[in-house]
């Protein structure tokens, strides 16, 4: 008889984080999450759900129940390509794509996003590039991504890169805007603004006031 190995899937109330749902739903319109009827429309039509460790419907149930660690370290939100199919079809108006973005931001800030996983790495490289130059250069971005995640893949993709370059479709030099300081001032003034707050951050904000 096969041995049952599901013990690690059982969680007792004391191990859950009851405030997690509040954190995630602190985004504008986030409270709709509590209206979810678990119909599964989102998971059914999500083109990425077959590759996710938890489907969108499960993620919503887990957020409500307080499975913070499991949700934030799962690959689900990073597989969301933000095509908004779920958001448009949800019969209860849950902004699922925005919930996915909120969990991405929380995962990065809590430092629990999957390690050496290309998607958060790409997001952070992209962020840095735009922060300093105001524009991103696809060529440089892709090179940095491969170097940080899988240098062997860079070699495999070299032919594609060369072909793009020969057709004038791949810029390596960094493109930047003229009035960089204007953009810097603008972004800097929002440095501490958070649309989704973890409890720790809410407490900090309270103290600061």
């Amino acid at each position: 008889m096969p041995v049952w190995r599901g013990w690690d899937k059982i969680k007792y109330q004391a191990q859950l984080d009851p405030a997690f749902a509040e954190e995630v739903t602190s985004i504008p319109g986030g409270e709709k999450l509590f209206d979810c009827i678990q119909c599964g429309t989102c998971s059914g039509l999500c083109p990425l759900s077959p590759y996710m460790d938890f489907t969108p419907r499960k993620i919503i149930a887990m957020i409500r129940a307080g499975f913070k660690g499991e949700v934030l370290s799962s690959h689900t939100c990073w597989l969301c390509a933000s095509c908004y199919a779920c958001t448009v079809e949800c019969p209860k108006g849950v902004k699922i794509t925005e919930i996915m973005y909120a969990t991405k931001r929380l995962a990065i800030r809590e430092g629990v996003s999957p390690k050496r996983f290309a998607i958060p790495v790409l997001a952070e490289e992209f962020f840095r590039d735009v922060e300093s130059n105001g524009r991103n250069s696809e060529g440089r971005l892709i090179m940095k991504l491969y170097l940080k995640t899988n240098p062997f893949k860079a070699l495999k993709q070299a032919t594609l890169g060369l072909r793009l370059w020969s057709q004038g479709r791949l810029g390596i030099r960094s493109d930047s805007i003229k009035r960089k300081s204007e953009l810097k001032t603008l972004l800097k003034s929002l440095e501490k603004e958070r649309m989704v707050r973890s409890r720790r951050e809410t407490a900090h904000a309270g103290e600061a006031k």
Binding site: S82, Y101, R105, V130, L186, L187
Partner: peptide
């Protein structure tokens, strides 16, 4: 003139406020 990057999906994954600012 002097347009900047829209931030695409990557910026939204890090800071929504800054994405809106862009």
């Amino acid at each position: 003139d002097d347009w900047n990057c829209c931030g695409a999906t990557s910026y939204m994954a890090i800071s929504e406020m800054k994405a809106f600012a862009l």
